[in-house]
Amino acid sequence: MAKELEEEDPIKLAAFQAKIDAEIKIEPKDWMPEKYRIGLIRQMSQHAHSEVIGMQPEGNWVSRAPSLRAKKILMAKIQDEGGHGLYLYCATETLGTSRDEILENLHAGKAKYASVFNYPAPTWADMGAIGWLVDGAAIVNQVSLQKTSYGPYSRAMVRICKEESFHQRQGYEIMANMAKGSAAQHKMAQDALDRWWWPSLMMFGPHDSESAHTSQSMKWKIKRETNDSLRQQFIDKTVPQAELIGLKIPDDNLKLDSETGHYSHTDIDWDEFWNVIKGYGPCNKKRLDHHKKAHAEGQWVREAAIAYAKKQELKLKTA
């Protein structure tokens, strides 16, 4: 268990908070409270796992992409997601954990990833909806995280945001094309929006009042904006985009408040949210099994790489 805040050295703790208040980034070798370190490892590895597990729903369609252009784009996008997972894994390691440990925690079910990837992607329109909504939601969150207080995390986020900017566009383009296509295509697009709308809103996490880590994370500027405020930004941006391409957001209570400029909406089905987090979503087992299987099947390759590297070192020494 991490050291409680009360057990930390109060002078160091005050200096740490003063640095954060002054917007000075915390770097790996700097003193930090145990809870900051542990909280960051939790959040960053969860973020990294989300990128990596997020490769799977799209991997489900890349071999069925309908054109050379679409296939190329999707390959590059999935590759980017792997890259983003990797930047984040490496950034997490600066906090004194290892890639092996991070993956063990994923496989043991101790580390989470974004629940949204536990939903299925049955049609090509899901490639549109994932890019437009899931990446759209992720971007809102990530833009805010560029200013996070931990240096390596912030730097990884800056890089990720730069690379992600095409992801949402490609998704929206797929949706727009399908929405104005044949009746069958339009229906697929609408169905995909119906499927992904609520899970995308859930990506921002529980209400601020229910969120266990929010207030401390805000104080330490690990998080820069609250779940509810980010969620609202996403809704306000996305609703007009749906209207523009003739698709309907599956929420009859959606209404623009002309005074605040924000949309009011139906509350999320929180039973479903917790259910999927607890492991009972449609694809939880499938996604995790896929990752474990690839990892197990790669073991002989990793062992060979270790053995070969050792032989080479030995040759250098004896030469």
């Binding site: 799977q56 991997g59 071999s63 390959m75 999935i78 590759q79 894994y89 690839a294 390759v301």
Partner: peptide, 28 residues
């Protein structure tokens, strides 16, 4: 492209996708 997310470790996954992207570019 079928191999995505199935590599022996993450770096290798990305590397084989790079090769795939070169080849689909040649094909196109």
């Amino acid at each position: 492209c079928e191999y995505t997310s199935k590599g022996p470790f993450l770096e290798e996954d990305l590397a084989s996708m790079n090769t795939g992207l070169d080849y689909i570019g040649q094909a196109e």
